Simulated assay, not measured.
Amino acid sequence: MSSRHSPVSRPITIRRAVARDAKRLTRLVRGSGAYAGKYAAAVAGYRVGPDYIEAHRTFVAVGADEYGGRILGFYSLVLAPPELDLLFVDDEVQGRGIGRLLVAHMQSEARAARLDRVKVVSHLPAEDFYHRAGAVRIGTALANPPAVPWDRPEFEFRVSPE
C-alpha cells in the first residue's frame, strides 16, 4: 500500500476556520488535482475570503506533527438552504480518511443546527467519494455556462437525530 493511501496515523484536529486561513483555503481549491485539465477554469479565479469564512460554518482539518501542523482539508456548511458548499482535501493526503472525518464533522454540525439533510452539488471526479461517504444521489444540477459548462450530480446527506 502506498503512503498516499495509508490511513490517518496521527491525530487530525478539526477547528473552525479563521480569517487568516483564507489564503491557504483558496490555494487548496485552486490547486486541487480534481480540477486539472478541462475543469481548471471552474476554480481559476476562485477565492475563499475572510468574509466567506465568517458567513458560513467553515472548518479546517489540521494535521499533527507528521504534517507540520498544516491545513490538510476543509469544508463549508451553509445552513439556509442546507448545503455542503465546499469540501477539499489536499491532493498529497487524499485516501487517508481526512475527507470522511470532515464529512462526519459536517454531519455533527448539521445535527447541532437541527438540519435533517444537507445537499451537495458534486464535482464529477468527486462523485464516487460522496457515494462512499453515505450521500444519496437525488438528481442532476444542469450546466451553468460559462462558469460550469457540464452537468453535475446532486447528492444529499441524510442527518439522523441524536
Score class of each variant (00 low, 15 high):
residue 11 P to N: 12
residue 78 V to I: 11
residue 18 V to F: 07
residue 89 V to T: 10
residue 97 G to M: 00
residue 91 D to C: 02
residue 84 L to M: 10
residue 41 A to C: 07
residue 76 S to I: 04
residue 133 A to E: 12
residue 68 G to L: 06
residue 131 H to F: 09
residue 36 A to H: 07
residue 43 V to E: 06
residue 74 F to M: 09
residue 38 K to A: 10
residue 35 Y to R: 00
residue 32 S to R: 01
residue 42 A to S: 12
residue 42 A to Y: 03
residue 8 V to L: 15
residue 141 A to C: 09
residue 111 R to A: 13
residue 4 R to P: 00
residue 88 F to K: 04
residue 76 S to K: 05
residue 62 V to R: 02
residue 104 A to P: 00
residue 138 I to M: 12
residue 84 L to N: 04
residue 151 D to Y: 10
residue 104 A to D: 15
residue 30 R to L: 08
residue 24 R to N: 06
residue 79 L to R: 08
residue 84 L to Y: 03
residue 55 A to Q: 12
residue 72 L to N: 07
residue 71 I to V: 15
residue 94 Q to D: 01
residue 61 A to M: 00
residue 135 A to L: 01
residue 130 Y to W: 13
residue 157 F to L: 10
residue 113 A to G: 02
residue 43 V to A: 07
residue 13 T to S: 13
residue 5 H to Y: 12
residue 94 Q to N: 00
residue 58 T to W: 03
residue 85 D to L: 04
residue 98 I to F: 01
residue 10 R to S: 15
residue 148 V to S: 05
residue 16 R to P: 09
residue 29 V to G: 02
residue 123 H to F: 06
residue 19 A to C: 09
residue 78 V to F: 00
residue 68 G to C: 00
residue 73 G to H: 02
residue 24 R to I: 14
residue 31 G to I: 09
residue 107 Q to F: 01
residue 146 P to T: 03
residue 138 I to W: 08
residue 114 R to G: 07
residue 28 L to D: 03
residue 142 L to T: 10
residue 14 I to T: 02
residue 51 D to Q: 14
residue 116 D to L: 06
residue 28 L to A: 04
residue 121 V to T: 10
residue 20 R to D: 15
residue 83 E to S: 08
residue 53 I to N: 04
residue 21 D to I: 11
residue 106 M to V: 02
residue 48 V to H: 03
residue 129 F to N: 11
residue 87 L to Y: 08
residue 133 A to M: 13
residue 126 A to Y: 08
residue 138 I to F: 10
residue 44 A to H: 12
residue 142 L to G: 09
residue 54 E to N: 09
residue 156 E to L: 11
residue 129 F to E: 07
residue 47 R to V: 15
residue 160 S to C: 00
residue 107 Q to P: 02
residue 123 H to W: 06
residue 17 A to G: 13
residue 160 S to D: 08
residue 125 P to A: 04
residue 76 S to G: 09
residue 113 A to C: 05
residue 144 N to D: 14
residue 113 A to P: 01
residue 27 R to T: 09
residue 78 V to R: 14
residue 21 D to T: 11
residue 158 R to K: 05
residue 138 I to S: 13
residue 74 F to K: 06
residue 22 A to M: 06
residue 15 R to E: 05
residue 57 R to Q: 14
residue 132 R to V: 10
residue 19 A to V: 12
residue 142 L to E: 14
residue 16 R to C: 11
residue 57 R to E: 14
residue 18 V to H: 07
residue 46 Y to M: 13
residue 149 P to G: 07
residue 37 G to E: 13
residue 100 R to T: 11
residue 22 A to F: 05
residue 28 L to I: 03
residue 60 V to N: 01
residue 94 Q to H: 03
residue 5 H to A: 06
residue 114 R to E: 15
residue 106 M to W: 03
residue 45 G to T: 13
residue 78 V to E: 11
residue 90 D to G: 01
residue 103 V to N: 07
residue 107 Q to K: 14
residue 18 V to D: 06
residue 81 P to F: 03
residue 119 K to E: 14
residue 76 S to A: 15
residue 152 R to K: 13
residue 10 R to Q: 14
residue 87 L to R: 08
residue 162 E to Q: 05
residue 18 V to Y: 01
residue 128 D to L: 12
residue 137 R to K: 15
residue 159 V to D: 04
residue 19 A to T: 10
residue 43 V to Q: 05
residue 62 V to Q: 08
residue 113 A to R: 03
residue 93 V to Q: 01
residue 41 A to E: 11
residue 20 R to L: 14
residue 56 H to M: 03
residue 51 D to L: 11
residue 140 T to N: 06
residue 91 D to R: 04
residue 30 R to D: 06
residue 88 F to N: 04
residue 58 T to K: 04
residue 116 D to Q: 11
residue 34 A to P: 00
